[in-house]
Nucleic acid binder design. Structure first.
Lengths: 368, 368
DNA sequence: TTGTAAGCGTTATCAC
DNA sequence: GTGATAACGCTTACAA
């Protein structure tokens, strides 16, 4: 690795001159020094000089590094690429770097096996992505480390940034009302009935989405109808979708809000199998990150703003870093945006290939 | 932050003694020094001492940090959490850390906007996760940086680690043969017909899986049958699944290998809608990472070993780091493992709720 | 504008 | 087993 020393020797000036020139701390108004500065830069380029960030860090007293902390158990952490994107953009803008760290279950109970990044604390702050509602011990554990911390995709009473799932559910109801829907049901496969221990490991949206739905329906003076199935880790639950749709069929809904995208996909698949056109006969709406690969044109969605969540988390972290007295901030929810279903929900190719509508018989869900 | 100096002052010994004790470089066989060492450790603990990794790095001449490089465009990178897990485990084992970095398209063409980690090169090596087959310029770009580099989930003629998709497809055929299947079709929705420019942006598995299938079928003396649909970014393509199943229905397959999990899920959904029992009437097999959430009990799969891919990538990177003369290594594919469908493929709950089988009419795919 | 010199926190060397 | 001393690469008063 090229050092300032080598460049100094090559150019015949002192080390600190090289440092100053390369950091742009000379005004370079006179021709002589300006020429010399140009020569220094040229040689630095020729030698492929890169500043040694460790040496710089040791002088500046900062690691210029933020840890992104996820849970060792996959389902206890959730972040789309977008969240990392937003985070990285903002962090890079401040000249910092993102270090991926993992926190395993037993590392919290046995401090002997603390992960390296906590043993060494070689970062300036934490962005935590542990989305389950565990007991407060974890949060207190982070409070003990003298580092600014921001929680992402997690709702708590302070220091957190998360998509406004409650507001999104409300807006979904309002949008559907605006489209003329009056009988809007809510279907989810991953809510737990009770407030038992297991429920504590669920993402806040599992509570907030149905709550937002219920509140908005009540505010609109409309009757709510909810069908819940117990959680299962499967990507498609056609059996759940089928039985949930049957459960509310007699109620004749014209729109359904699904708890998440796979659930919406399951519902759509079952609707198709029954010859119900989506969204023409039955609107399906849900919540989804803005990932191209998840595009489901027939399904309306509130788009979860994970890029902004990441960006905002970084903003708040740097604010904490620059104002060490500011110890915590109130919870921040980021608004979701409405993405209506494409009008060509059922693709011509499928319509043509589908079973003749009369064979599926069941039409109870169709609107008059 | 507590430093060695403070501990030295507190205990009344020299800085380097503290350093030695804390690094366990004293044998501590005599009682006197052993007691003193204990006292030093105690005070270090009391003061909350953490080694300054920057200072250590500057002394050791290493950043103790590996960059994980992903592409700024989401679809050009792909890594499950498992890959990161395997990588982190191995990296942490060597006392290194993982820095997340992103490479955007225009940063490659305009060197002015090089990302910080490449401008500063403050890592010891690169683990690259850019899975599209772009032109070689990117690979050459990395070769220019004097850092060991390993490519993951990417097949190339050197310096890469990836799941053995070709072998997995072969094994899928062999396993299905072992179960008595003779008419095995291959269905995929994301292969491009030609070798055009767009195809260069595809993952290697899009080629390797059908190729492995074709080779194994030929080796078994069985006729191949392939149905391909053009790529679309949607999570479910029931229309594709429907038309592809129709296309090969007359051939009367007893098993289908799907190009990936969403495709398998689409096929299963359509099979269900038609009253075809999976896997009893029609076996569906595919390729999938070992993520709990993707469990689809009725579908057989070759499990993609991403944890090992990550681990192996780290292994190879550290080998390169420790033997700087070893400039490159031949491509390494990691074997996948067979995960058969659960026998209770169609859940009783669904069967009960499903349309009566006679209404769907279409039984062409059933085996005699 | 430039050079000298000190110092950041740590580790390695080498006499003791 | 210990401690003085030097060194890692860089930044920055301060004096020239």
């Amino acid at each position: 690795m090229t050092t300032l020393k080598e460049i100094a020797q090559e150019t015949g000036v002192s080390i600190c001159t090289v440092s100053r020139v390369l950091n742009g701390k000379n005004r370079e108004v006179w021709p002589g020094p300006a020429q010399r500065a140009e020569r220094i830069r040229k040689i630095a380029r020729k030698l492929g000089y890169r500043v040694n960030t460790s040496a710089r860090a040791i002088r500046k007293g900062s690691f210029h590094s933020i840890a992104f902390v996820r849970h060792g158990t996959t389902r206890f952490s959730w972040y789309p690429q977008e969240l990392l994107d937003g985070l990285e953009d903002e962090i890079a803008h401040h000249g910092y770097r993102l270090a991926m760290e993992r926190l395993d279950e037993q590392q919290l109970t046995h401090p002997r096996t603390l992960p390296r990044f906590l043993r060494e604390l070689s970062v300036d702050g934490f962005v935590v992505n542990i989305v389950c509602r565990m007991n407060d011990s974890l949060i207190k554990a982070f409070a003990n480390y003298d580092r600014p911390t921001v929680w992402t995709n997690f709702r708590y009473h302070q220091d957190c940034v998360f998509p406004d799932d409650f507001g999104a559910a409300r807006e979904l109801v309002e949008r559907l009302c605006g489209l003329g829907h009056r009988r809007i049901a809510y279907i989810a496969f991953d809510s737990m009935p009770g407030k038992d221990e297991e429920a504590q490991s669920l993402h806040y949206s599992v509570e907030d989405r149905p709550a937002g739905y219920a509140q908005a329906m009540e505010a609109a003076g409309l009757p709510s109808r909810v069908a819940i199935r117990p959680h299962s880790g499967q990507v498609l639950r056609l059996d759940y979708a089928d039985s949930a749709l049957r459960e509310i069929a007699a109620w004749k809904p014209t729109a359904i809000i699904a708890g998440n995208l796979p659930e919406a996909a399951s519902l759509r698949a079952v609707a198709r199998a029954r010859g119900i056109s989506v969204p023409d006969d039955l609107a399906i709406a849900t919540f989804a990150p803005d990932i191209e690969a998840l595009a489901l044109s027939a399904i309306s969605a509130m788009v979860l703003p994970f890029r902004q969540v990441g960006k905002r988390a970084a903003d708040l972290l740097f604010h904490k870093l620059n104002h060490r007295e500011a110890q915590s901030f109130p919870p921040e929810s980021v608004a979701c945006t409405w993405r209506p279903a494409a009008s060509t929900g059922d693709m011509p190719g499928y319509i043509q290939a589908a079973e003749p509508a009369e064979t599926s018989g069941q039409k109870t869900l169709r609107t008059p």
